[in-house]
Design a protein around this nucleic acid. Structure first.
Ligand code: FES
Ligand code: FES
Lengths: 145, 145
DNA sequence: TAAATAAAAGACTTTTAAGTCTTTTATTTA
DNA sequence: TAAATAAAAGACTTAAAAGTCTTTTATTTA
């Protein structure tokens, strides 16, 4: 089990890929996205629908249609994707599954785990959707395999 | 979704509870453990069987039987529990679900995520099963709710 | 040694996550 | 305006995680 659900992993990879393609001036169809991020095509379709409803990606139907990211969305943080797919638990939940994390009656791992959680939160808030476009275009970063 | 599976959360809570009770001089039955860590009793039974096979907890059947932790196991790190239940993925896996994490062809989150993963790994290696016994006995830490 | 106790074992069910398929709707272009 | 294209919608299936139940085995104690 990873830190994010499989669905969320596909979502993040897809959004990075779409951002890169938008940066290059293209709208991108599901088939191309799926093959470039190594995900099952119909499942990815479901995920992109959800992201489109959340306003994280944009889409147009018909010939020359596909998915893209509008200027306003380029700077959205990765945390928006994670929250839309997996919810907020990763930002607030207890390491050991207590129903809520608190300073007043903490679990044994609380002090260490809140640092971990903060790091994850910082990473996801600091990182933007379009942040890696150039490195992806240059082929220095990987979204598949 | 948390960082650990639900099964693993129960396992950690149970082991801390058994350690505390062993420290106080008792063997503890499943019913008592389940009610004190707020877990479903028959599911916990399965989990404890697995931990017993892994040598992380010890058990004796029959009257006055139950679960306890032998002296040699007190100092085992929490990572042994996590690895026995969830496997090693949390220590080595890629944030975005690439089939392996590497420096040579990293995903966009690699540099940030390896720090997160290192923190989790350190926390789990540094923390021992018996480390919180006294605070648990004093009621300063919580394993339920 | 019989009865009681408590974990081990394994088959089973339920729930959730992951993945697929078919039909509909919107858009473009010939 | 018809044909082609591509996403949206929703019903559906499969696989994995979570949880339950019943029977067996080991141990103790009366
Ligand atoms: S109470 Fe468990 S992490 Fe805060
Ligand atoms: S390659 Fe993704 S975390 Fe290392």
């Amino acid at each position: 089990m990873g830190v994010f659900s499989k669905t969320c992993e596909y979502a993040i990879r897809a959004v990075f890929y779409i951002s890169q393609r938008t940066h290059e001036g293209y709208k991108t169809g599901i088939k191309e996205i799926a093959s470039n991020i190594d995900s099952p095509e119909p499942f990815l379709a479901k995920i992109l629908q959800k992201l489109a409803k959340a306003g994280i990606v944009q889409s147009v139907k018909g010939p020359n249609g596909g998915f893209y990211i509008d200027i306003a969305s380029f700077d959205r943080p990765l945390s928006d994707i994670v929250e839309a797919i997996d919810g907020a638990e990763i930002f607030t939940g207890c390491a050991m599954g207590l129903s809520f994390c608190s300073e007043v009656n903490p679990c044994p791992l609380h002090n260490d785990f809140k640092e971990v959680r903060n790091r994850i939160t910082e990473m996801l808030h600091r990182t933007s959707i379009s942040q890696f476009d150039e490195e992806l275009i240059r082929g220095q970063l990987s979204l598949n395999k």
